[in-house]
């Protein structure tokens, strides 16, 4: 029973981390930008789902495509108006820029929606599925299905569509992609939009399983960074793996040592993985370049 719960929770949390981390890694891979505001995009996604559910009374999972579109547009605009102006500066400067953006978004969330914690509760929030003596909350199962669907769609998009392949090519060899006729500036903006859309979807999913507030994004940016590094910075597939590794490490830490040491265990695992595999799980050498 416990181990089954462990697997379901691990997969669910891991899937959400994977989605969050993949978006973060895409932006890093294509633009060499560490987007500190990624967590706040998640926060906006959570509120979008909350308000659509509250005002229109629809099912939270139905809101996901809409908030993906809204956040795509938002991310696209942010890249075009702000981020694109500093792509030539050092990575630290873009880091600070997105840090400023993050402060702005958190404060905006605080002003618009107040500091109190909210939760999205669909009508079936308390229903459980009983399968051969096992009980699983129905909501978690739906989240799991949604997570799998999003990851599958993302992988399909990246490998089968022209746009996805152009994004990959730009991440691998910017100049070569440009020579091959890819409009890399457009790809930058689209990638940023895609990353924000993924964050928005993750926010909607998190809103269903956890209470949230305007500051929810801060630790999530840390998780996104961790997941992306675990997977090998710049590698989107790596980040997908990294999400599951981190989630199982965190949940396993709680089970093995009790709540107090959970985070400590996750960090130790991260440290050990890094020291043993200095380029992350799937990272390639050139992804480690940092221009100070």
């Amino acid at each position: 029973m416990e181990s089954f719960q462990f697997v379901v929770n691990g997969l669910m949390l891991g899937g959400i981390y994977a989605i969050v981390g993949a978006g973060f890694a895409l932006v890093y891979g294509v633009m060499n930008v560490l987007n500190v505001a990624h967590g706040s995009f998640i926060m906006i996604g959570a509120y979008l789902t909350y308000w659509t559910v509250t005002l229109l009374g629809v099912d939270p999972f139905v809101t996901l495509p809409a908030s993906a579109v809204a956040l795509f547009a938002f991310g696209y605009l942010v890249q075009r108006t702000v981020i694109s102006r500093v792509l030539h500066a050092s990575i630290f400067m873009t880091f600070i820029l997105t840090f400023g953006l993050d402060m702005f978004l958190i404060n905006a969330g605080l002003v618009a929606w107040g500091g109190s914690y909210r939760a999205v509760r669909p009508s079936y929030a308390d229903d459980v599925l009983i399968m051969g003596g096992l009980t699983i909350p129905y909501v978690r199962l739906v989240v799991l299905v949604a997570v799998v669907a999003v990851i599958a769609l993302l992988l399909l998009f990246m490998s089968k569509t022209r746009l996805g392949i152009a994004i990959k090519a730009t991440a691998l060899e910017r100049e070569a992609a440009q020579l091959a006729g890819v409009d890399v500036k457009q790809i930058d903006a689209i990638t940023f939009g895609l990353s924000a859309a993924l964050a928005g979807v993750a926010g909607g999913l998190l809103a269903v399983v956890l209470p949230f507030g305007p500051f929810m994004g801060v630790p999530l940016t840390g998780k996104a960074f961790t997941v992306a590094v675990l997977g090998g910075l710049g590698s989107m597939t790596g980040a997908l793996y990294g999400g599951f590794v981190l989630a199982f490490a965190e949940i396993g830490g709680v089970i093995a040592l009790g709540g107090e040491w959970a985070d400590g265990i996750a960090f130790i695992i991260l440290l050990v993985v890094l020291v043993l595999r200095p380029r992350g799980l799937l990272g390639k050498e050139f992804f480690a370049e940092v221009k100070v």
């Binding site: 961790t226 590094v229 910075l233 960090f267 991260l270 890094l274 020291v275 200095p278 380029r279 940092v290």
Partner: peptide
């Protein structure tokens, strides 16, 4: 032994 972001994240984890 780590470099770049890998070093950065390891120090954060520490």
């Amino acid at each position: 032994r780590l470099q770049g972001h890998y070093f950065a994240i390891a120090t954060l984890a520490l």
